[in-house]
């Protein structure tokens, strides 16, 4: 009894002060982050809002008449790019995650593969651009096409999709699998009818966040030679293209002030595409939290 009590000094006020200080420090970091984001958004909106109109979406970029310039070629290029990227990366990424988590034996090889996928997620995007240039454009002969761009972006986001999907699968409690096996279900039946329905919302969240990352990428596209000045919309996957981030970058580089404002408007359009995607991801997660089958 005495041993325990001798060294104990309550100093309750002091400890509470430390706790309060820590909470204050964390809260001020939140305020700082939101403040910086707010300043950024306001300055962009201030520059670009007056150019935002349906014409801005429907006009091609113009160097001679910037008053009538728009983002049509870049907007359609980006839509093509994201559509093709999703079509390639989502099935491959989800299938890889399902195999790694549900089927593969938990051996050294699986661990090695997973470790490498995690490493690939950290590789700078320009490296994927160089890879895309060498493999898709030169080796496969796809040219500087929107398909080559989409395949490059697919490589870029595959590790992210696999990791996110694996985590969603790992969050499904083993008791569900064991119960299904216990009732005589095969592995395929277990995965299809029990694990996937529970994991799909989490997987979708990861997929959408990965796709929004691809949406904002410029470096790998510049590397594979997406064009700067283009005034037509891709008509097929093998057409040349430009994308929103490249159009924005190109405008920011122009000397006249009006192009800086156009760049601001372009950023607003890009944000206008990103925010709904992220909102869908958040929405799916919220919906999933409510109807979770376990807990």
């Amino acid at each position: 009894m005495t041993l325990v009590n001798t060294n104990f000094e309550p100093r309750l006020a002091h400890r509470r002060r430390i706790g309060w200080f820590f909470a204050f420090a964390c809260a001020s970091m939140v305020v700082l982050a939101v403040f910086v984001l707010g300043v950024l958004l306001i300055s962009v909106a201030d520059q670009g809002w007056r150019w935002l109109s349906l014409d801005f979406l429907d006009n091609f970029p113009s160097r001679l008449n910037p008053e009538k310039a728009g983002v049509k070629s870049a907007l359609f290029g980006t839509l093509w790019l994201i559509g093709l990227t999703a079509a390639v990366s989502v099935p491959i990424g989800m299938a890889a995650a399902i195999y790694l988590h549900e089927y593969a034996a938990k051996g050294k090889l699986t661990r090695f593969i997973e470790l490498n996928i995690a490493n690939l997620a950290g590789v700078p995007s320009i490296v994927y651009g160089i890879l895309g240039l060498a493999v898709f454009i030169r080796l496969c002969g796809l040219g500087r096409s929107v398909l080559a761009g989409a395949l490059t972006l697919s490589l870029l986001i595959l590790p992210v999709i696999i990791i996110a999907s694996r985590e969603a699968l790992a969050a499904v409690p083993d008791s569900i699998r064991l119960a299904a096996f216990g009732l005589g279900a095969t592995r395929w039946q277990t995965v299809r009818s029990h694990v996937l329905p529970a994991a799909i919302p989490g997987m979708m969240t990861g997929v959408i966040l990965a796709l929004s990352r691809a949406l904002g990428e410029a470096a790998p596209l510049i590397m594979i030679g997406a064009l700067t000045f283009i005034t037509f919309v891709p008509e097929g996957p093998l057409d040349t293209f430009t994308a929103m981030p490249i159009q924005i970058y190109n405008w920011i580089d122009e000397p006249d002030l009006i192009f800086q404002e156009l760049a601001g408007a372009g950023i607003l359009v890009l944000l206008g595409m990103l925010l709904p995607m992220n909102a869908v991801a958040v929405g799916i997660r919220a919906w999933h939290q409510r109807r979770k089958a376990w807990s």
């Binding site: 001679l64 700067t228 000045f229 005034t231 037509f232 040349t240």
Partner: peptide, 24 residues
Amino acid sequence: APITMAAAEMFMGEQPRVRVTVGI
């Protein structure tokens, strides 16, 4: 590039079915 972009724009005003692309 500003020269060729301007040329491309003006030329495509006359020949809208030709696609002139300019990279930097």
